[in-house]
Amino acid sequence: MLLKLTGSSCSGKTTLAYSVGERLRHVVVHDFDELGVPEGADRRWRNRMTEMWVRRALEYQDRGIDLLLTGQSPLGEVLASPSAPLLNGIAVCLVDVSDEVRCSRLTKRDPGRWDAPAVDAFLDWAAWHRNHAEDPRYRPDVIFDDSWSGMAWYRWAEWTSNDRRWRTHLLDTTDRPVAESVDQVEHWVTEQRDALKSGRLTLSRGWSDETADRAGHGS
Rank of each mutant, 00 (worst) to 15 (best):
L58E: 04
E51W: 10
R43G: 07
G64Y: 05
Q72G: 00
T70E: 05
A118R: 14
V95K: 08
C103T: 15
G89M: 02
K108Y: 03
C103N: 08
L75F: 04
C93E: 05
W114I: 03
I90K: 07
E59P: 02
T107Q: 13
Y60D: 02
F144S: 07
E134Q: 15
V142G: 00
W114A: 03
T50C: 15
P117R: 05
P140V: 08
L87E: 01
R139D: 14
R139E: 11
A121P: 01
L68P: 08
L123N: 05
R43L: 13
A91S: 14
G112C: 01
R55P: 01
Y60S: 01
L79I: 06
A57P: 09
R44A: 14
A84Y: 04
L87D: 02
E100I: 10
L68I: 10
R113P: 00
D99A: 10
V97I: 13
D110L: 00
L67M: 12
A91F: 05
L123V: 08
G112R: 00
R46I: 02
H132E: 12
A116S: 11
W125Q: 09
L86I: 00
L106G: 07
L123I: 13
R46V: 06
V119N: 04
V119Y: 05
L67T: 11
R63Y: 09
E77I: 08
L75I: 09
V119I: 15
R105N: 05
A133V: 06
L58A: 06
T50A: 10
T107A: 14
K108Q: 12
R139V: 04
H132G: 01
D124K: 15
D96N: 13
Q61D: 09
L79E: 00
W45D: 07
D66E: 13
N88S: 14
I65M: 12
L69Y: 10
F122D: 05
R56E: 14
R109E: 02
R63L: 14
A84W: 04
D96P: 07
D146K: 14
D62G: 15
P85C: 02
P82G: 03
I143W: 12
R139A: 13
S98V: 04
I65F: 13
R55C: 09
W45T: 09
G89P: 04
E77D: 01
P136F: 07
A126C: 07
Y60L: 14
G64C: 04
R44D: 03
